[in-house]
């Protein structure tokens, strides 16, 4: 039994070293000293005072975003911004905080891809565009998805002088957007390919 324990210890030690090395060499490896969820602790520890009424999930989300200096917008507000003429001039930007594959599968037309886990990939494209934009709407899947919050915080780190009113979080996210059958662009930004909801609903027809 002692030999088995020693063997297990050996496997564990060598395995740990190999794992660290593999993570370091992997192009998708995590950076160990990077906080991928900044201000998450502050946002999570806010509790309603005893005796107050129970807040709705939306109110709680708005309060938690406000605590980190971000503003939540709803579907009506996001639709107004989508139709705002400033969007055509790239003075109003949409930023998709999800990973590459969900982004390519469908995003709000004209939205930039910005995965905060690999923010350095987007320094040359997204950051310069955000620096001249007057307003930036960040979204992810919506619901329990936190990615838009962390993407917005990462963007704020890169952009100096970005005030609260410039960075907005669309709480409903892509799930709500698609549920409302709003335009969805497939592939890369400005690909021109829009999702055909009817074709998706009735395949083969």
């Amino acid at each position: 039994m002692k030999k088995v324990l020693l063997e297990a210890l050996g496997v564990a030690l060598v395995g740990t070293l190999v794992a660290f090395l593999a993570n370091g060499l992997s192009p998708r490896g995590l950076v160990l000293d990077h906080d991928y969820f900044p201000s998450a602790g502050a946002a999570r520890t806010s509790h309603p005072a005893s005796g107050t009424h129970t807040n709705s999930p939306t109110e709680m989300l708005a309060a938690s975003l406000k605590s980190v200096g971000l503003e939540l917008i709803d579907s009506n507000q996001v639709l107004r911004l989508y139709h705002d003429p400033r969007r055509d001039q790239d003075l109003l930007l949409f930023v998709d905080a999800r990973e590459e594959d969900p982004y390519a599968a469908g995003h709000i037309p004209g939205a930039f891809e910005f995965n905060h886990f690999h923010a350095e990939k987007y320094v040359a494209t997204v950051i310069p565009a955000c620096q001249v934009a007057q307003q930036i709407v960040v979204y992810c899947n919506g619901g329990n998805c936190d990615e838009s919050r962390f993407a917005a915080l990462a963007l704020r780190d890169y952009l100096s002088g970005v005030s609260k009113t410039n960075l907005l979080i669309y709480g409903g996210g892509m799930t709500e957007w698609a549920t409302n059958r709003l335009p969805v662009e497939i592939g890369e930004r400005h690909s021109g390919r829009l999702l055909d909801y009817d074709a998706v609903a009735t395949p083969g027809r």
């Binding site: 740990t16 794992a19 660290f20 993570n23 160990l32 000293d33 991928y36 969820f37």
Partner: peptide, 12 residues
């Protein structure tokens, strides 16, 4: 610690 667990465990 979160990063270490998430980075190392899969390769382990």
């Amino acid at each position: 610690l979160l990063n270490v667990i998430s980075a190392v465990l899969p390769w382990f």
